[in-house]
Write a protein that binds this DNA or RNA. Sequence first.
DNA 1: GCGCGTAATGGTCAGGTTGACGAAAACCGT
DNA 2: ACGGTTTTCGTCAACCTGACCATTACGCGC
Lengths: 232, 232
Amino acid sequence: MSASWTIPTVAMAVDLAVLTVRAERLHVLLVNRGVEPYRGRLALPGGFLSTEDEDIDVAAERELAEETGLDASGLHLEQLRTYGAPGRDPRMRVVTVCYLAIMPDLPLPSAGGDADRARWVPVDRVLGRRRLLAFDHGQIIADAVDRARAKLEYTTLATAFCNPEFTISELRRVYEIVWSEELDARNFHRKVTGVDGFLVATGKRTSGNGGRPAVIYRRGPATVLHPPILRN
Amino acid sequence: MSASWTIPTVAMAVDLAVLTVRAERLHVLLVNRGVEPYRGRLALPGGFLSTEDEDIDVAAERELAEETGLDASGLHLEQLRTYGAPGRDPRMRVVTVCYLAIMPDLPLPSAGGDADRARWVPVDRVLGRRRLLAFDHGQIIADAVDRARAKLEYTTLATAFCNPEFTISELRRVYEIVWSEELDARNFHRKVTGVDGFLVATGKRTSGNGGRPAVIYRRGPATVLHPPILRN
DNA sequence: GCGCGTAATGGTCAGGTTGACGAAAACCGT
DNA sequence: ACGGTTTTCGTCAACCTGACCATTACGCGC
């Protein structure tokens, strides 16, 4: 390094891979890009830091709130990975810290006539056809889905896809849809009720589904599963 | 955002949490900081991007090679997490992408009379006393150790702590030291030899250790462990 | 009210895995 | 040759898993 070397700076962005289970499929929240580059393609919601000293976690929460119109508190939000290959944005050097968010299938407030509103897209529709996506967002979505699939095994992440109160069937559907794998209802029931701290019964029951009413549970204090629920 | 808003840029750094097992303890590679801020404290090796368009993965490999004097190829190197809280560096806004590196206990080429050379420090000596460390590096080391501990369960990461050829005992010592937990040698042997793709026998055997010679293995093609080796 | 379809939940049972530990194998040093 | 040491193989009970039958408890149509 010569004496004239100065510390390089880069544009700092955050992107969000927001996943949910909706209509029996895993979906990711995407926006239509209205500007170049990649105008017209689908992209992850996200953006640059709003000020030079905005915390990146705060920026992620802000973007999530802006894009979904929902309060980010209560939703699962974790850092996924940072993507910083030079050339990933043709305009300039951009390093983006990506976050994985998991939420239940809440109705997105469709406020404002904003044509570029975020919308849910089935993951399997975009993963096969990466040309639909801007930047390296196809790779990011693949990484996010991998992470989510893996974390269902050994953490209680699946409950983040559910409403605050849910049944064991609903939880099982989350596993089945995210993993694309059928699970035996009885064994699954035995397993999840056996892990302690995973589920807390509310005492309430469902009704009107044309079958035996299911006990309604709430998320328990556990965050890791011992033992894990393994895929095949 | 007003019309005069410009994209904020930040100084981009990479830091390395390099772990190894050495003298029956888990160690992390640290340097003595010779400059303010935090002069005199211990810090993770790392530094700013060398140019504005250096890839961050490449920067991590470069720093690793510079600090250890070793070729980074062949060593395990994965992104850990990005730390970007404002104020974590008192000089300016710095966002640092941290990497976790795992290596066997190779002798570090002590080339050059550089007083600030990297050296191995037992993890348990720094984790209790975070005041020894610069910036948020105490937290980063804690995160790195957590990640390593977790990945021993369900990946073949433990082999990255070993030389290319190793015995099952050596592998077991890695687990015991990283987890701070004793494992039964016979059950461990049965387990690791049962997972296929984990270990490949070389046909060679040890000698001169005052016991029955051990079969020497090499890392197999597997990267994930099915089933996992779980902690208690 | 009664049977039927449906979904939730409770069991059973064989097969596999784990943890605790005995024992044999194969070397070293003396 | 013998005791010490380390590796490797075996055994056995406890536990866990996957497959699957049975029971419970509802809504619905008649």
